[in-house]
Amino acid sequence: MRYNRWFTPWVLVIPALTWLLVFNLWPSINTVILSFTNARPIGGGHFVGLKNFETLLHDEQLRWALLNSVIYMVVCLPFLTVLPLLLAVLVEKKLPGITFFRTAFYTPVVASAVVVALIWQWILDDRGLVNGLAEKLGVISGPLPFLSDQWLLLLSAISLTIWKGLGYYMIIYLAALGNVGRELHEAAAVDGAGPFRRFVHITIPGVRGTMILISILISVSALRVFSELFILSGGKGGPGGRDSSVVMLIQQYSQGFEGNLGYASALSIVLFFVTVVPMLVLARLNRRGAEA
């Protein structure tokens, strides 16, 4: 049964569909096409066959970028799956003033990555808050080069990403916690299970699906990192460009007379495959867990 003329739904859908075709589907196809060319940011370019992909294989910066991405993901995953859940449990109870705390914990999410990266840049500066405090306490004798050492810079960016992500995943967990039956907690409490055991045996299994979803989100966003590393390294990608991420390389090749949109597109294809892997792995884990 139909209650509308045949074209009515299409009139409503067409704007969104146009956007989808022009700004999602066509660019996906065009990325592949471009990757076989040497297109320039100003325009032009012609077919160069597999040249871009050959260059990829010998690109030392890309190797560093991929290594950085893996480190980023591996460090972010445990922290960002666990800490936000603890936070969600903490703000779940509706104590007086809890809305204030929830909003405040969400503030780093709302702030632009550029803003928070500039703030951290100042805090981690050679003469900044962290080094000042650590020297005052006598933990270190000279300032730690958080922003100029290859590994410390990466670590600083990772901490920044974790700090900025806490509130975001907290909110997702908070929504999921609402669906965990209160009766289970009550029953377990009556049976004498303390808060810790209830957390492990009721809360965690209750939010398992959300946890896997969040792991996927964390992995993918760790592989897509850009602003934090870009700003903390002053746009240079650290010593010798070794603190670049794949997205930073894409951005680097998108600009100026040195730019090469063809090569940037080849890098985009690498990025695509890199982000699909954790999605497939975790989706598979999810299915297996659901069957068990």
Binding site: F23, P27, N30, R224, F226, V247, S268, I269
Partner: peptide, 26 residues
């Protein structure tokens, strides 16, 4: 209707950064 819905769902797998260069070209 289902095809349209499927199209919208399919694009979720694609991180925006992957298409950002060709989006710029567009």
């Amino acid at each position: 209707r289902r095809i349209v819905l499927g199209l919208f769902l399919a694009t979720l797998v694609l991180p925006g950064e992957v298409t950002i260069i060709s989006q710029y070209v567009t």
